[in-house]
Design a protein around this nucleic acid. Structure first.
Length: 453
RNA sequence: GGCCCUAUCGUCUAACGGUUAGGACGAAGCCUUCUCAAGGCUUAAAUCAGAGUUCGAUUCUCUGUAGGGUCACCA
């Protein structure tokens, strides 16, 4: 695909603040951003808020917040409502030039009032353009009729506003969703009538939901901020979204933002729509989690850890830090730390768990004497380990022979259960290390006492 | 329905007109293992259909089919 390289590339993201934007919307922003950046161009954000009734400030804030979160910085921010003057001027000139006319019609909303609509005098011709992704597209504009471009001279509608803004801002490449293909001929007609240079178009494939319909708020697509709040990493979302409809042509799948700026190419963007696959997102997010420094991982974990955990008696920052790798291993997003904490799945790390004595038995074993004997032996062995060297490998080595001879399940299950009070948990050696020698002994002692009781 | 776009494993996708159609996610199995997770290995899984062009079509053309988009005084 070729384009005018002499002109500085300017792209834009032009959302309407009429709802919370979902991943599909932001993928458009990402592609637009990446394209601009890698051509040393500019990326403009324009809030299309000409629909006064439906536009809400809170949505605009959400959009800006999301862009900042994704780290998509823009070179300029506009609000379409502040540019109405320019639209009116364009409208006037169109009318003066005979390209448009005022049409007095009854309002469609049933109010019965007569309005002075501005209609575009459609020349009714064949319009074609070379889409950067799809190639040549031809559409006959005849059946579009004299379409309405403004509700009045001071109330511009989408098509005229978009064309005037893009032209005035010098947008060279319009990167937007495929759902805009049908709008393009109309807008080209306006470009021609206004005497503006027609920009390059790149119509992206749509992002679909599981039922293969266009992602939409109405159909329950999650807004991007939902993923932020669930503790996904912005760089992972960026990576995931970039890979939805684009690929580098290599087998590399995990990209940083810089790498994306390096590798992205509009001509490797897919023509067909893609489905938003949370499973893949989870995997990519986890890969990015692993890429973080230990300090950053710990900071994230601390942020998401609910108060009910940090308030526990045996809680300490150091202890939490020692759990870092283990925690990372078990989650696909940091938000799960909060979920696990709230579900009580982390409590045992910081407080003596309560449980039924029966649960200490391995499988079908019910020999109380043997159980007590084994737990006591485990205690003895642990007691012999130097507190300064209380690491999982050392603990494992100390216990392994006994456990193997006795039956690992018979020894390790009760030990692990005594420490965690849970059917599922990390292995007993890791737990012992995290809990420390004295707590480990105390908890096993607690189990032994239960057996006697 | 008109117009437009699209079509490779369930999903994301790779493949100068010549490959045993490759990879990833997910799934299944095995290994490891007291449980969970992680990790390692392995397996199943696709060119929408039919014509045509060609020595040879996933790839080019046409038709059909399917899916999607769009048909506002929203954007």
């Amino acid at each position: 695909m070729s384009f005018d390289t002499e002109k500085k590339v300017i792209t834009r993201f032009a959302p309407s603040p009429t709802g919370l934007l979902h991943g599909g919307n932001y993928r458009t922003a990402i592609f637009s951003y990446l394209f601009a950046r890698q051509h040393n161009g500019q990326f403009i954000v324009r809030i299309e808020d000409t629909d006064r009734e439906r536009s809400k400030k809170e949505y605009e804030e959400n959009i800006l917040e999301s862009l900042a979160w994704l780290n998509l910085e823009y070179d300029a921010l506009y609000r379409q409502s502040e540019l109405v003057q320019k639209h009116s001027e364009a409208l006037e000139s169109l009318i003066a030039g005979g390209y448009a006319y005022i049409s007095k019609e009854e309002a469609k909303d049933g109010s019965g009032i007569i309005r002075e609509l501005v209609r575009f005098k459609n020349p009714g011709k064949q319009v074609s353009f070379d889409d950067l992704i799809r190639g040549r597209i031809e559409i006959d504009t005849t059946d579009l009729g004299d379409f309405v471009i403004a509700k009045s001279i001071t109330e511009p509608l989408f098509h005229i506003a978009v064309v005037v803004d893009d032209a005035l801002m010098g947008v060279t490449h319009i990167v937007r969703g495929e759902d805009h293909i049908a709008n393009t001929p109309r807008q080209i007609l306006l470009y021609e009538a206004l005497g503006y240079a027609i920009p390059h178009y790149a119509h992206l494939p749509l992002v679909l939901d599981e039922s293969r319909a266009k992602l939409s708020k109405r159909r329950g697509a999650e807004p991007l901020t939902y993923y932020r709040d669930k503790g996904y990493l912005p760089q992972a979302i960026l990576n995931f979204l970039a890979l939805l409809g684009w690929n580098p042509g290599t087998e590399k799948e995990i990209f940083t933002k810089d790498e994306l700026m390096q590798s992205f190419a509009l001509d490797r963007v897919q023509k067909s729509s893609g489905i938003f696959n949370v499973e893949k997102l989870n995997w990519i997010n986890k890969e990015h989690m692993k890429l973080l420094t230990k300090e950053e991982q710990f900071r994230q974990i601390s942020n998401y850890l609910p108060r009910q955990i940090t308030e526990l008696a045996e809680f300490s920052k150091e202890k939490l830090m020692s759990m870092n790798d283990l925690l990372i291993e078990h989650i696909t997003s940091f938000g799960q730390i909060r979920e696990m904490g709230e579900a009580g799945e982390l409590t045992f790390y910081f407080a003596q768990p309560s449980y039924e004595k029966e649960k200490l038995f391995w499988k079908d074993e019910r020999d109380n004497t043997m159980l007590t004997q084994r737990l006591t032996k485990v205690c003895d062995i642990i007691m012999g380990i130097d507190e300064k060297n209380f690491g999982q490998e050392i603990i494992k080595n100390a216990l392994w022979e006994y456990a193997t001879n006795e039956g690992r399940g018979q020894v390790l299950w009760p030990m692990r259960y005594a420490l965690s009070g849970r059917d599922k948990s990390p292995d007993p050696f890791q737990l012992a290390q995290i809990l420390g020698k004295s707590v480990t002994l105390k908890r096993i002692g607690h189990a032994i006492a239960l057996c006697h009781g």
